[in-house]
Amino acid sequence: MTDSPGAESWKKHQSAFDRVRSVAVTVSEPRSANWIAEQAHVAGNTARDHLQRLVEMNVLQTSTGDGATHYAPDPLYTRMQALRDLLDGRDRDGLLQLRGELQEQVEEWQTKYDADSPSDLRDKAARASTAAETQEMRRTANDWDIIAYRLRLVEDAIEHYSDYAGSSPVTA
């Protein structure tokens, strides 16, 4: 793997810890230390040390599969990172406005494609008359999945704004 394209540049500009972290927080299913080590271009023992630190920091969580420890992002950490990104530079009014914009985008797609959900749109994409249309509809369905998640995050941020933004509750 050390000869794979980009590996030398990546190793030059990011530490082993950062490489392990970046790979581990973006896995779609739990992965072993050896798998993460190979992807991050570090030795197995180095990966295990860094992964253990990331578990202690609540960035990752572990599970056991095939007799080995597997690592995946801690869902609470993932959610906190996404909420932090939403709240940076946005007050409650900004969140309300964003909620409106995201809802409007979803409604526009629902109307344009006569689809209820991203998976419904993917089904329609498979039956589109041209390959270009299929491609465009699939890309829209992918964006729709992401925006649906953003919308749920925004709802969460609005509901718990005073807790997340750290403002003091009004006292009587």
């Binding site: 927080v25 973006t26 779609s28 992002p73 993932t78 990172q81 996404a82 992918n142 999945d145 992401i146 925006i147 649906a148 998640y149 953003r150």
Partner: peptide, 8 residues
Amino acid sequence: DPGRASHT
């Protein structure tokens, strides 16, 4: 959740 995974 593909939306959550992709956004992450």
